[in-house]
């Protein structure tokens, strides 16, 4: 019943109205409403234009569905601004500028801030740590003199 133009138009309006919601929640909401419409049409036993219009009218305007959905969530502005906190900014600054001006120490202190943050997931923290430790290990080993012997070296 997805090919019903009225239903597609309604779901399109719902998706447009749901832009403030998180992408995952938006997809979920459209799916839920689609299932609801399908169930109502199956229950009605027909999918003619009048029945579809009745079902959609009973659901109400897409904007109202989104408004009701948004009431249970944080406002979108606060969610957007909450992606970056002081800890995340300090971590990124230490990893970039800190790596240039405070070699070795800067990135490692930056990693401490990364692990202190609650906005990055555990896999993201692990990957970032692996990148820093992996790439810093090479110069540390070079400075410590571990590596292939230089050609013409009389050592040993």
């Amino acid at each position: 019943m997805d090919d019903e133009p009225l239903v597609r138009d309604y779901l399109g309006r719902l998706e447009s109205a749901a832009w403030p919601l998180a992408a995952a929640r938006r997809t979920e909401l459209v799916g839920e409403v689609r299932e609801h419409i399908d169930a109502a049409l199956t229950e009605a036993g027909r999918a003619d234009e009048v029945t579809v219009r009745n079902v959609l009218e009973r659901l109400g305007p897409p904007e109202e569905i989104v408004a009701a959905e948004s009431e249970g969530e944080a406002p979108p502005q606060s969610r957007t601004s909450s992606s970056w906190g002081a800890i995340e900014i300090i971590a990124v600054l230490l990893l970039t500028v800190g790596a240039v001006f405070i070699p070795f120490v800067g990135p490692f202190v930056g990693l401490v801030f990364v692990w202190a943050s609650t906005r990055w997931t555990l896999p993201e923290k692990l990957i970032a740590s692996a990148i820093v430790i992996g790439l810093l290990l090479l110069p540390i080993l070079a400075i410590l003199g571990v590596g292939p012997p230089q050609p013409g070296c009389a050592c040993g």
Binding site: A23, W84, L95, T96, G98, P107, L111, V114, L135, L138
Partner: peptide, 30 residues
């Protein structure tokens, strides 16, 4: 290892990790 490579790798480590973390946060916001 050449000094120039060492000097390049030190900031690269932090910058690569920072780029990864920034992309992770930006992607989640969408």
């Amino acid at each position: 290892m050449d000094v120039a490579i060492v000097a390049f790798l030190i900031p690269l480590a932090g910058i690569a990790a920072a780029i990864f973390l920034v992309i992770a946060l930006v992607r989640r916001r969408r």
